[in-house]
C-alpha cells in the first residue's frame, strides 16, 4: 500500500477548509437574501457567532467521526486517502478523537513542524506517529475528481461572497438603519462641549 504524500494530504485539508468556509459564506449569503434590517441582521449574526464560537469543537467532531466511520474526512475521501491504525483497520472512536486533538496539538506546535514531517521518507506526521496511524492511498488516480471538487468548492465560496456583497450593498433598509444609527451617535458627539481654544483659556 502506498502512503499519502504531504501534498495530497495538504489538498485534502484545503478541501475540508473550503467546505467549512463555504458553509459559513452560504449561511451569510442566505441571511443577505432575506433583505434584513439592522436589527434582524444583528440577530442572525449573533446566532452565527454562537455557532462560530464552537467551530473548534465542530471541527474535532467532524474529523473524528468521519475518520472513524468512513476512514477519512471529505477531503481525504475525495483524494482516495484512508486513515488506518497499526492493524490496518479503521480507527476506533477514542483513537480518532485522540489523533485529532492531542495529535494535532503536538503537530501544530513550532509552526506546524509535525505536519511538515510528512515530507520525510516514511510520510508520517507527528500525530500519526503518536496514534500509530497511517494515511494510505486507497484509490489512486483521483486527480479529476479532486479537481472537480476543488473547483466546485472554490466556485461556491466565490459565488457566496459575491452574493453577500451584492445583497448587502443593494439592501436599502439596512443602509437606512445603519445611517440612522451612525447619525444619532454622531449627533451626540456634536452636542458635546468643544475643547476651549488657547485664546479662551487665556
Amino acid at each position: 500500500m502506498t502512503k499519502g504524500t504531504f501534498w495530497e494530504r495538504l489538498i485534502a485539508r484545503i478541501i475540508d477548509d473550503l467546505l467549512f468556509s463555504a458553509v459559513f459564506l452560504v449561511a451569510l449569503a442566505f441571511i443577505g437574501l432575506t433583505r434584513p434590517n439592522l436589527s434582524q441582521l444583528t440577530s442572525s449574526l449573533l446566532i452565527l457567532a454562537a455557532l462560530m464560537l464552537n467551530e473548534p469543537l465542530i471541527k474535532i467532531a467532524y474529523n473524528s467521526w468521519l475518520t472513524s466511520k468512513y476512514g477519512g474526512t471529505l477531503g481525504k475521501l475525495v483524494l482516495g486517502l484512508e486513515v488506518l491504525d497499526e492493524n490496518g483497520k479503521k480507527l476506533k472512536k477514542t483513537l480518532s478523537i485522540f489523533r485529532h486533538t492531542a495529535g494535532y496539538l503536538v503537530s501544530g506546535t513550532l509552526f506546524f513542524l509535525g505536519y511538515f514531517w510528512i515530507l520525510r521518507k516514511d510520510k508520517l506526521a507527528w500525530h500519526d506517529l503518536m496514534a500509530g496511524t497511517v494515511v494510505i492511498k486507497k484509490k489512486p488516480h483521483r486527480a479529476f475528481v479532486t479537481a472537480v471538487f476543488v473547483i466546485t468548492l472554490v466556485t461556491i465560496n466565490i459565488a457566496a461572497l459575491a452574493g453577500i456583497i451584492l445583497t448587502f450593498s443593494s439592501n436599502q433598509n439596512l443602509r437606512n438603519d445603519v445611517e440612522g444609527l451612525v447619525k444619532s451617535i454622531s449627533s451626540v458627539e456634536i452636542d458635546k462641549p468643544t475643547k476651549p481654544t488657547t485664546l479662551e483659556t487665556v
Partner: peptide
C-alpha cells in the same frame, strides 16, 4: 438598539458561549 433584538437570540448566543467555554 440592542433591546430590539429578541431575547431568544441572546439566549442562543449565551448557550453557544457557555458550551464553548465549558467544552
Amino acid at each position: 438598539f440592542f433591546s430590539s433584538i429578541p431575547m431568544t437570540v441572546w439566549l442562543i448566543l449565551g448557550l453557544g458561549l457557555l458550551i464553548a467555554i465549558v467544552m
